[in-house]
């Protein structure tokens, strides 16, 4: 099931909504679509350690050379950074927005010549560590940064896990909202992603 990011050329920023059950699978689909499209994907992970994500991506046939990780959970959860992890930056904690912001800026600048694209996985997990007001401001900061660099970005969130106020704010920061798990109006097209 390919992810419909066909407007990635025209629209730059997307908010992707997914059910909690399909979050992992949808993450893989998005990465696959982006790497196949020649993008160098900067993945910000706050839920799964980058080491595990690398194994999952490799098992799914995703080219790891096209993925750069900003890992905000490993150091916080296990208290140390694994050695010998290429293309990975570790941030102390998902709540350390300053370091996270610096890491994002550095990663985007470092990959600026390689068609960079940012994947934020996920806003819902970030809500464990920071209040909704702070996350709204941070996403606005990242979105502004991406617009300045003219780079696309995808923000993933658990569908129904975001309150109407935060959802409205996030919607104003992006160009398009995609509901990955909305039923398709086309007969037999179950599971095709739809614009929200």
């Amino acid at each position: 099931m390919p992810v419909d990011l066909s407007r990635l050329g025209q629209d730059k920023l997307f908010l992707v909504l997914s059910t909690a059950e399909k979050l992992r699978q949808n993450n893989i689909q998005i990465i696959k679509t982006l790497t196949d499209g020649g993008y160098k994907v900067v993945v910000i992970t706050t839920n799964r350690p980058s080491g595990i994500l690398k194994k999952i991506y490799a098992a799914e046939g995703i080219e790891l050379s096209k993925v750069f990780f900003i890992d905000a959970i490993t150091k916080y959860a296990i208290g140390r950074v694994p050695e010998g992890e290429p293309d990975t930056v570790f941030v102390n904690s998902p709540s350390n927005l300053t370091d996270l912001g610096i890491a994002i800026t550095s990663a985007l600048n470092a990959t600026s010549g390689n068609k960079p694209c940012l994947l934020f996985d996920s806003i819902s997990t970030m809500l464990i560590y920071i209040p909704s007001i702070a996350i709204s401001k941070f996403i606005h900061f990242v979105a502004s940064k991406l617009r300045l660099l003219d780079a696309p970005g995808i923000f993933v969130a658990v569908e129904k896990g975001i309150d109407p106020l935060l959802l409205t704010q996030l919607t104003t920061y992006v160009d398009d909202v995609i509901d990955m798990d909305a039923p398709s109006p086309v007969p037999g097209g179950d599971g095709e992603p739809q614009k929200a």
Partner: peptide, 8 residues
């Protein structure tokens, strides 16, 4: 937002 959704 900060309890139910993360628990899911």
């Amino acid at each position: 937002l900060r309890l139910k959704a993360p628990l899911e």
